[in-house]
Design a protein around this nucleic acid. Structure first.
Length: 829
RNA sequence: GCGAGAGUGGCGAAACUGGCAAACGCGCUGGACUUAGGAUCCAGUGGGCCUAAAGCCUUUGGGGGUUCGACUCCCCCCUCUCGCACCA
């Protein structure tokens, strides 16, 4: 192992101290400068930062420092998503209070981030479990309540038996809890919801207006919102003038092919439809059977569809025909009206069910020639459809809606897959929902003057179900803010995704006491110009935050439509085939890497090993390479310190020799490449490789120029190259570059320097190498003047002695000349 | 099943608007310097033919196509990753 590493421990500590003392990264609103709000998703304080976390902070810091140098007024804050279950679980396991556990972790992790030297404005640090933070969330909750955007209802929800709490739909993956992977079970429970569905259309529409977002994420959000257009109408129950079944369909054109109808097993109408005790019994048995199957079984699309035929039947309003009515498990109560018209001819699910239950199948769209499938869902001409015959599917859809509307039987209707966001959590370590239940007044929001409703500290945590707050008498028993009588407090806490839905607003004015944020500050900084975080939040956090931003706007607090202008979804850090995580036991500790190689090296490796959107395989040898490179830079500067310091820090004049001109061209070509790579496509890996090439060229020029280039000119070129390396490398490896920058005699920070710009004069060349191909194979090379006449290049190519033998015995059919690049001589025998 | 993305050396990867495939780094090989080298510097390193060199042939998952020219564009197929998945 190397013992000759540069003294990164001292350097890193020194510059972190200096930056801190100078408050170098503190941000203030300044309307005269363009602003850049750079934000990484804030962490949950789970214990320790490891190299899986480091990646996102390294990317954020690089962009923030780059933008500083580009002249932007940068806001780059950090904070803690501090409420959540792990704190509570730790408390149950180890007997530590969640608050103590959380704040200890925060202290440790803050120390780690400081030692990484990230350019945060630490004065803006925000901690979501602080009442000074969540009080504003409670206030907004009350505003949302007033507007019907927050509401309470009893419903069937996703229950995680391990976390002992309800989960929102977004937080269930394949029937399992997103956090602990336990199988989720349905449970009927009272709970609080945010009406995100009221924003479904806007959330969807803006997906087309976020060009800075990865298409992948937008697609996931569009799918999740799941808008579908169709019609809703009633099917009268035969012989029961008082009853009708409301159905939703996107294929109202196929209504003439309806051969039965289906209700979801839990459909409330079922109880009124049953005719006698025997049927009631059969329904109960069927429902029990369906309820028994787990969420995961239900999700398996290819399992047989179970159904129960009811004695009632319904009437097709278009034809007057009576069709049988079923309960079936493939119809979900939670979507549409919980009831469907079944058209087995054009819907595969209905087709499967009809086959299983011997029901007739009517085709209402002409099949294309050679069609061999079962149900046909494609385009075609309508048949067997009365007044719709002969129309296309799209025409028939319109006409069917018109028909329904004209008779007052139904209407056009848009449905969404998106459900309202269930935010109640039956756990302790979260923000209390600021609501009370009074015997006289019913449900009452807490008075604003009484906010925050502070989460009590003295609580018994058993993990045994039920909200722990319910047992805290002095919390639960309160006064009704309306009548002053006795009232009970709500004991559910809010989903922790609520805190993370607005923390980026709080950073704009983190100590503001007059509200959630100071309008002026928020409107200066927001929206976030560059957001950086993991793909796992493609739907969860990123959808909630968009929704909440629109709510704040509609409450009149701010004029921002969308929180994040651009999003960079960075890939995972993998070790041994699995995502680096504490639970997998494959973490590489940030402390260890910093101890052994220094913070700059760890960051450099993660930025170099792969482009940011790709997964990154941790590699112990790779980090040695990064370390080697920084030492190589370090050694060069120290070894040449006298020569460098005696040269002026300014652009070199035009070099007198080719070797110098070529070297200077390399310097400026590197500036151009690195700038483009960072600015345009976040290709930090190729930016670093370009800097490495420049350092290689620096070593080569050092040796080659020794006896050839006049000393003064050589010194200036070396200094220009070294300073360029330091400026370009600064955002990647801030400590070592800042140190070397000061060693060169600079009194002001590297990060107060303007980002270098490429000198067009240096980039200009007089001659270029042109490749000569014969029939597409490289046979020779020419050195010609830039922009040499095509005819001249053609003649030189044909006359080249390496090329001639390949052309000699053949006839030249054609010569393609690509200026300054290549000549291709095409021959025939 | 539907949708999106990706397949390039021993490995991580690069290649602009169709123009020298494999930059940069890791690993490996050799040399220099050294008491020493697991430090550093220099050189080599896709595969094959050839005693060797010069040189030639060949190579971007597979097959076809367009083009003077294809990692890049088009068609078919295979594999992998991610997302959605009875949403009517």
């Amino acid at each position: 192992m190397s013992t000759d590493r540069y003294p990164f421990h001292e350097i890193e500590a020194k510059w972190q101290r200096v930056w801190e003392e100078r408050k170098q990264f503190s941000a203030t609103e300044d309307p005269s400068r363009p602003k850049f709000y750079c934000l990484e998703m804030f962490p949950y304080p789970s214990g320790r930062i490891h190299m899986g976390h480091v990646r996102v902070y390294a990317i954020g810091d690089l962009l923030a420092r780059f933008k500083w140098m580009r002249g932007f007024n940068v806001l780059h804050p950090m904070g803690w998503d501090a409420f959540g279950l792990p704190a509570e679980n730790a408390a149950i396991e180890h007997g530590v209070h969640p608050a103590i556990w959380t704040y200890e972790n925060i202290d440790y992790m803050r120390g780690q981030l400081r030692k990484m030297g990230i350019s945060y404005d630490w004065d803006r640090e925000v901690t979501t479990c602080d009442p000074a933070y969540y009080r504003w969330e409670q206030l907004i909750f009350i505003r949302m309540l007033e507007r019907g955007l927050a509401y309470r209802k009893r419903s069937t929800v996703n229950w995680c038996p391990s976390c002992q709490t309800v989960l929102a739909n977004e937080q269930v993956e394949d029937g399992r809890c997103w956090r602990c992977d336990s199988e989720v079970t349905p449970r009927e429970i009272d709970g609080w919801f945010f009406k995100i569905t009221a924003y479904a259309d806007e959330l969807l529409a803006w997906c087309d207006k976020l060009p800075g977002w990865p298409e992948r994420v937008l697609t996931m959000q569009r799918n999740w919102i799941g808008r579908s257009e169709g019609a809703e109408f009633d099917l009268p129950v035969a012989g029961r003038a008082d009853l009708k079944v409301r159905v939703f369909t996107t294929r109202q054109d196929t209504v003439f092919g309806m051969t039965y109808a289906v209700l979801a097993p839990e459909h409330p109408l079922v109880d009124r439809l049953v005719i006698d005790a025997r049927e009631r019994e059969a329904v109960a048995a069927f429902r029990a059977e369906v309820a028994k199957q787990s969420e995961i079984e239900r999700l398996a699309a290819d399992r047989p569809k179970r159904g129960l035929r009811l004695k009632a039947s319904v009437v097709n309003p278009f034809t007057g025909a009576e069709v049988p009515l079923f309960l079936a498990d493939y119809v979900l109560m939670g979507y549409g009206t919980g009831a469907i018209m079944a058209v087995p001819g054009e819907d595969q699910r209905d087709w499967d069910f009809a086959k299983q239950h011997g029901l007739p199948i009517v085709e209402t769209v002409e099949r294309p020639a050679g069609f061999t499938g079962e149900a046909y869902a494609g385009e075609g001409v309508k048949i067997n459809s009365g007044f719709l015959d002969g129309l296309t599917v799209a025409e028939a859809k319109r006409k069917a809606v018109d028909w329904l509307v004209g008779r007052g039987l139904g209407e056009a209707k848009v449905n969404y897959r998106l459900r309202d966001w269930g935010i109640s959590r039956q756990r302790y370590w979260g923000a209390p929902i600021p609501v009370l239940y009074c015997d006289a007044c019913g449900m009452v929001p807490e008075a604003e003057a009484n906010l925050p409703v502070v989460l009590p500290r003295d609580v018994q945590l058993s993990g045994k179900g039920g909200s722990p707050l319910a047992d805290v008498a002095h919390f639960v028993n309160a006064r009704c803010p309306k009548c002053g009588g006795p009232a009970r407090r709500e004991t559910d806490t809010m989903d922790t995704f609520v805190e993370s839905s607005w923390y980026f607003f709080r950073y704009c004015s983190p100590r503001y006491e007059g509200g959630m944020f100071e309008r002026r500050a928020a409107e200066y900084w927001m929206p976030v110009d560059q957001y950086i975080g993991g793909i796992e939040h493609a739907v969860l956090h990123l959808l909630y935050a968009r929704f909440y931003t629109k709510v704040l706007r509609d409450l009149g607090l701010v004029n921002v439509d969308e929180p994040f202008t651009a999003l960079l979804s960075q890939g995972m850090v993998i070790k041994g085939g699995a995502k680096m995580s504490k639970s997998k036991g494959n973490v590489v500790s940030d402390d260890d890497i910093r101890e052994k190689y220094g913070a700059d090296t760890g960051r450099l490796f993660e930025l170099f090993a792969a482009p940011p959107e790709k997964d990154l395989e941790w590699n112990d040898q790779g980090i040695e390479g990064a370390s080697r490179f920084l030492n190589r830079v370090w050694r060069f500067v120290l070894a040449h310190l006298d020569e460098l310091r005696s040269a002026p820090s300014a652009a070199s004049p035009h070099p007198s020799l080719d070797i110098g001109r070529a070297f200077r061209r390399t310097i400026h070509a590197t500036i151009q490449r690195v700038t483009d790579d960072i600015e345009h496509d976040f290709h930090f890996n190729t930016a670093i490789s370009a800097i490495m090439e420049l350092v290689n060229a620096l070593y080569a020029f050092d040796t080659a120029s020794l006896d050839r280039v006049p000393a003064g000119e050589r010194g200036r070129l070396l200094r220009e190259a070294v300073e360029t390396v330091l400026l370009l490398l600064g955002p990647f490896c801030p400590h070592v570059t800042e140190e070397l920058w000061s060693q060169l005699g600079h009194a002001t920070s590297l990060f107060k320097q303007p980002w270098p710009s490429a000198d067009a004069e240096a980039l200009r060349r007089n001659e270029v190498t042109v490749v000569v191909q014969v029939d597409g194979k490289v046979r020779g090379r020419l050195t010609v003047d830039v922009d040499a006449a095509e005819e001249r290049v053609r003649q030189l190519a044909l006359g080249d002695e390496k090329v001639r033998p390949w052309v000699a015995s053949r006839r030249v059919a054609k010569v393609v000349v690509v200026p300054n690049r290549l000549v291709n001589i095409v021959t025939i025998a």
